[in-house]
Write a protein that binds this DNA or RNA. Structure first.
Lengths: 122, 122
DNA sequence: AAAACATGGTATCCTTTGGATACTGGGGCT
DNA sequence: AGCCCCAGTATCCAAAGGATACCATGTTTT
């Protein structure tokens, strides 16, 4: 017997969908960096520091595809490309903030649980 | 010049860390299913439906490792293994709920942005 | 004049991860 | 005897992540 309603299930699908959009290695970082205003490609790259060009490109493409970020090309010399959060992107920062607070509050517990678990597996 | 403070950066690390824990294909679904009480392995498997044994095992191991779920083995015949949310795991549901609400509210916008983007790429 | 640097990217390659399928092993059911 | 249930491993292949090298254009440096 299935106790899970169809609505619950599709809701979970949506959540999983959004989480796998947002839950990769760089997306949240980029969204946070863009929250103060538009930024150029290499500006983001320098701020993040240890991201490869390819990953920054694909992260930004993904955000653009989902309507969270706009990409504006200025055909100057040298070329200039600005990335900026859309309203939807700025909106996303609210629930992410909630998760960020939880993460900061509990990352210690998680890390010690991990250490304990890994030690027991020896 | 770096405008990103060290505190901001480590906070983002923590958020990314938690998100990549939670942001995979199955974790949120499992946490939601466990929120009504303990469940057995195959009980979860049947409810989720299209998950492989391996993925369910590794999802649950990950949650256990991070202290979000407990695993209890009853050496009965047939064996019985219960999975249950810890306090930390139940705690996590609060910020995830926030993201879930956002996801349900905005999944439509995201999907149409995707469709639009993919159409333009032709 | 040649070298080096800046811009915002592709292309290529390899490693890591995701996931389907098959198998284990003890017991019970028919 | 042959099948199913339980909670998993083991194996293998496809997909994704990610480092490195390269591109075209133009300016600055040596």
């Amino acid at each position: 017997m299935l106790t899970l309603s169809h609505r619950d299930h599709t809701a979970c699908q949506a959540v999983s969908d959004v989480l796998s959009r947002v839950g990769d290695k760089w997306t949240v970082l980029v969204v946070e960096l863009l929250s103060d205003g538009p930024m150029r490609f290499n500006e983001l790259r320098r701020l993040i520091g240890n991201i490869s060009q390819k990953m920054l490109t694909s992260t930004l493409r993904g955000l653009e595809r989902d309507g969270l970020v706009t990409r504006t090309v200025y055909p100057t010399i040298p070329p200039r490309v600005d990335y900026e959060l859309t309203d939807l992107g700025r909106d996303l920062r609210v629930p992410v903030k909630g998760l960020a607070l939880w993460a900061r509050a509990n990352i210690g517990k998680i890390n010690s649980a991990r250490t304990r678990f890994d030690a027991d597996q020896v």
